[in-house]
């Protein structure tokens, strides 16, 4: 695997950081080197949030993403802000519940109605990030086994099953 740089962006409270954290942990379980960083505003909810994951077989130097190979946008603002930094041949994953306007792009695009599906399946929006995670891991080539273990280790056993179900749904939609 060559170096893959992933950017996940949305609003605070959408689980952007948790998705990045689980993706990173899963990649480590698959034997990769990983750096994951995050940035968010001082507010608990509603301000822009971003998580970046760099996955590589080699040692990773610079920890921040400049041009991403993969962009997951969970809000329209996030897409508008970061699409220009997605590589031309990159992969774009959007939560189509919130992202309605996608400018013309050569990136391979997956529209996942993650929030809608989460509400339909579990009656709660908070699982939308797991659907996005499903799409991300499938695109990048991270194993189901490693990701499910990462979900368990990150979120705890109590809520693992429902999150895994959402994750698997995300994979099937992408």
């Amino acid at each position: 695997m060559k170096k893959i740089e992933v950017r996940i962006s949305g609003l605070g409270g959408q689980g952007v950081v948790a998705a990045g954290q689980i993706l990173g942990r899963a990649a480590v379980y698959d034997g990769k080197n990983v750096v994951q960083t995050q940035s968010y505003g001082a507010e608990a909810r509603g301000s822009a949030a971003k998580s970046e994951v760099i996955i590589s077989n080699d040692k990773i130097g610079f920890p921040a993403v400049r041009k991403s190979d993969v962009l997951a946008a969970i809000s329209q603002e996030a897409l508008d802000k970061y699409l220009k930094d997605l590589k031309e041949e990159g992969v774009l994953i959007v939560d189509s519940t919130y992202v309605k306007k996608i400018p013309e792009t050569r990136a391979k695009t997956y529209k996942i109605p993650a929030t809608e599906e989460a509400e339909r399946m579990f009656g709660a929006k908070i699982y939308a990030n797991m659907l996005i995670l499903g799409a991300l891991t499938k695109t990048i080539g991270i194993s189901v086994k490693a990701t499910e273990k990462a979900i368990e280790d990150t979120l705890g056993k109590k809520v693992a099953d429902i999150n895994k179900e959402a994750f698997r749904k995300g994979r099937s939609l992408s």
Binding site: N33, V34, Q36, T37, P63
Partner: peptide, 9 residues
């Protein structure tokens, strides 16, 4: 902040 908040293997 960077080294304290980032996650790595």
């Amino acid at each position: 902040e960077i080294v304290a908040h980032m996650r790595e293997k």
